[in-house]
Design a protein around this nucleic acid. Structure first.
Lengths: 341, 341
DNA sequence: CTGAAAGCGCTAACAA
DNA sequence: TTGTTAGCGCTTTCAG
């Protein structure tokens, strides 16, 4: 038990293993990196010692030596509305799970999207931006740095970067079409923060669907919010005050839709007989409550997972590959909050 | 522009800076580490070059050299109930924010609390366990490894580790006392997953308060759940079926309390005239809805922040310090969901 | 199939 | 105040 060397980390090193196994550190390195050119007997011996000593190679030394890192940074803009709930947690959880599977280290980076600050990219093996509200500059920097980068929840047309987005416009269209198919013509829309691509596209989808169905688009039926429940409530109040009250409303998020339901109930209105509601998200909260919410399911988990997979692909590649641009389909989940007119 | 060396990382190194600034790498190192013993003129020059070359020191090399790491792992058990919502996100956000301030890298580790697997601690500068349901073994390992460790949301009496918890029992007592002060005697409790310390202590606090107020504790008034809305609903249904229906209920989480309110409403009962409800969390969702929820505010953000601060303290210390054990007070937030009997 | 040795980029004595 | 130099623990040629 004579540990002569006083390493700063104090931990077991590859040298300890080599010594104990009676081989060179090179051989140990080969074994832990699964390089086949090691005699079976040695391999077994090394593995034994590794287990015995509970040796875990220093990731820092590995990365210094290889110049590669398997740290994946998930960059989430610290915005009030969108990233304040179901969405963010779902994303983080899914990303975390898959990173675990791929043996990637997940670094969480909450960024103030207002400042045009540079990210410290050094040491990152891959970057995943969850949306790029106000972080476009950082995405550009990332691309230039050559670090594998993926953007999720935003379809980035004009930048050579992989992105995984959701068919927000399509989902919105489906929602509105469904309402139309039920006989509704007076359909309002409570939109999210149109600074986000998702909200903007949902609004666009709503308008498209109306047009395709030859229903005039009325300005007063479109209420813009910041995705918060508070503003959803105000929007719904405004809707109810309209001379020509809508019979249905498509709301850009479930949590806002829930708020609209609550307000309606407070005002003595019945859902769905007095007002049909479709949300967006498929937030489980929509399942509870007196009336289960009809909604557009967006594959958040799938999106995050595809993002990690694409990042992994990029990271494993030698040279930069063609970026992939993926749009994930949504699915209308019909429950109880809409009625046939 | 002759970059002879082909470094694996390809990035600007301290040597490039040194060369360009006409000083040794040591001097550059001193400058970036803010060691005062550098002539002002050189300091300025180096800083200039650093900016010009956009030099960012390799964290891996730094860590290899110093043996120190400023990576903080936040370990969250992947349990169904508790960590599926407001709580987890609030925690992650608060931790993320403070880590950003302290220049710590936040590594997110979702752990399957069922497996008794060892964490890969190598390379971690500090560990923060959010609760230790099923991860006790890993906490012990962490302590033995000598890596600064903090546990939050669990008061760990029997382990030499710093912990920041919340006064769950006290908060519960306050809630029940408040109900008693309003004249209630038939007070039920819908508890969370008593495998978690928080839920167990809230239940304990409930019982204590009853006893202190000379109110008999009735088994049928205590319903245990897994924190899910589904089970909250079942529990409330069971409560309503009781021959001697309670006039008030203290619910272990706001989201469950909200579900109880919803169910009550569905059954045509009015809150608070037919049933008084107190929740626990101060989840903003409780503010919306027809009746604002009276609740016990627990300082989640503060808890996370104190955790990071304590971790930082531990990490900055040379030798292991006395662990700190902190319990944070709760606060009863009286809103509209309780009535005087 | 194996090992010696040269780095990877940085920090920290130790000298100057 | 500065620079020289010896590592930190690992990977990776390049010879054996």
């Amino acid at each position: 038990m004579t540990r002569t060397k006083k390493s700063p980390s104090g931990a077991i090193s590859i040298e300890d293993v080599a010594q104990r196994a009676g081989v060179s550190i090179t051989t140990v390195s080969r074994v832990i990196n699964k390089i086949g050119t090691v005699k079976e007997k040695n391999r077994v011996k090394v593995l034994e010692v590794v287990k015995e000593l509970k040796f875990q190679p220093s990731i820092f030394a590995q990365r210094l030596a290889t110049g590669k890192s398997n740290v994946v940074a998930l960059i989430i803009p610290r915005y009030e509305g969108v990233f304040y709930s179901f969405y963010a947690l779902e994303l983080i959880r899914a990303t975390g799970n898959l990173c675990e599977v791929f043996k990637l280290d997940l670094l969480l980076h909450l960024t103030d999207s207002h400042t045009r600050a540079s990210l410290n990219l050094r040491g990152m093996g891959g970057l995943m931006f969850s949306d790029i509200i106000g972080t476009r500059y950082q995405v550009e920097e990332a691309i230039n740095s050559g670090i594998p980068t993926v953007v999720i929840n935003n379809y980035v047309k004009d930048l050579p970067v992989s992105c995984i987005a959701i068919d927000n416009a399509g989902g919105a269209e489906n929602a509105v079409n469904y309402l139309v198919s039920l006989g509704h013509k007076k359909i309002a829309h409570i939109s999210g923060d149109v600074a986000t691509q998702a909200a903007a596209l949902r609004l666009e989808g709503y308008i498209q669907a109306l047009k395709k169905n030859n229903i005039p688009v009325k300005e007063e039926y479109i209420l813009k919010t910041d995705y918060s429940r508070g503003q959803a409530r105000s929007a719904a109040e405004a809707l109810f005050k309209l001379p020509d009250t809508p019979t249905a409303v498509f709301v850009a998020s479930d949590s806002m839709a829930l708020e609209v339901m609550t307000l309606s109930r407070e005002m003595g209105k019945n859902i769905p007989s007095d007002l049909s509601i479709v949300g967006f998200d498929d937030n489980p909260s929509g399942l509870y409550g007196p009336v289960a919410l009809t909604t557009v399911r967006q594959p958040l988990i799938k999106m995050a997972e595809e993002g990690v997979k694409e990042l992994k692909r990029l990271m494993d590649l030698k040279k930069g590959a063609q970026p992939k641009k993926i749009i994930l389909a949504t699915e209308l989940v019909i429950r109880e909050s809409c009625r046939t007119l």
